[in-house]
Simulated assay, not measured.
Amino acid sequence: MMAVMSDQTLRTLIVDDEPLARRGLRLRLAGETDIDIIGECTNGEEAVRVIAAEKPDLVFLDVQMPGLDGFGVLRRLPLSNLPMVVFVTAFDHYAIGAFEASAVDYLLKPVEEARLSQALFRVREQAQARAASEQRDQLLELLGSVTGRPELSLEDALAAGAALPDSRRPVRLAIRDGGKTVLVEETDIDWIDAAGDYMCIHAKGDTHILRGTLRELEAKLDADRFARIHRSTIVNIARVRELRPHINGEYFLTLDGGHEVKLSRSYRDQLRRFRD
């Protein structure tokens, strides 16, 4: 891929609620001479204020954030002066195809240097030939894909997006496996165990390795469907077939297929969810 050099400095804002994600992206962008990082935001509300005040050229925008998420940020921005947006996501809530077709680009966490280089290539191309109407049309196409209503105006599409049940939308985990990305449906997950910054996602007889913390993943999953039963274990409630008491208030849970996981004493309050 031939390098595209921007003839302007791109004033860039990083928006992500995860400190390590912000730091990692900042470090990877440090060597790009035409990228001027003007700040970082830790949540959507802060991002709306900073974008309105600073008017950055480019925003790396996390899709999934507590409170006001990435699409919520877009809904709150003036339509006449939108920055270029590169979406950053750990989980494929939305169709990856929509990002590929409609956003400047998207990045999956953890961000890989090769993919970041590709995203910057596209950003620089658009910076050279960008028009407000083109960006408006791109965002309209993206939001039409997400809302399922491509006939809407951008204003109506953004408003319709506000009604999307994000917290109830089934998660699709995008997991890198060598040179490919495996998409795992939330409903297919049997249980998850963790060690350090890595998790084993057990789904439909396969085990997938995902980088991240159990706490972060727990926040993304449907709380009505999954239960934290140990500091290193999350289980799909529908997969539990038997409860067997152990010592000191602990339990062993038998899942479909016969696998056993331990419910620790610290999580005894979760027992009622299996008995209801």
Rank of each mutant, 00 (worst) to 15 (best):
P150A: 12
R268G: 09
L13I: 09
R272W: 02
A131M: 08
G161N: 04
Q135H: 08
I51H: 03
G257M: 04
A95G: 11
V85D: 10
R273H: 11
P78I: 10
L142H: 04
D92E: 15
R23D: 15
C200M: 07
R122Y: 13
I96H: 05
R176P: 10
L74K: 05
N248K: 10
L140W: 00
Y94C: 10
I237L: 05
I229Q: 00
A114I: 14
L271E: 08
Q270M: 11
F226Q: 01
A3F: 02
V88L: 07
V88I: 12
L140P: 00
T207S: 14
V111L: 12
L139E: 02
Y94T: 12
M5Q: 05
A223L: 03
T213P: 04
L158Y: 02
A47R: 06
R168K: 13
R215F: 00
V235F: 03
E54Y: 01
S80C: 10
D193P: 03
L68S: 07
A131H: 13
D16C: 05
L58G: 07
V146D: 04
L82Y: 10
E250P: 01
E155G: 00
R172N: 09
T187H: 05
N248P: 00
L82T: 10
A21I: 05
D105P: 13
R244K: 10
I192N: 04
E32P: 11
P245K: 03
A129W: 08
R168P: 01
E151R: 09
V123I: 14
A30S: 14
Y251R: 00
I96Q: 12
I96Y: 06
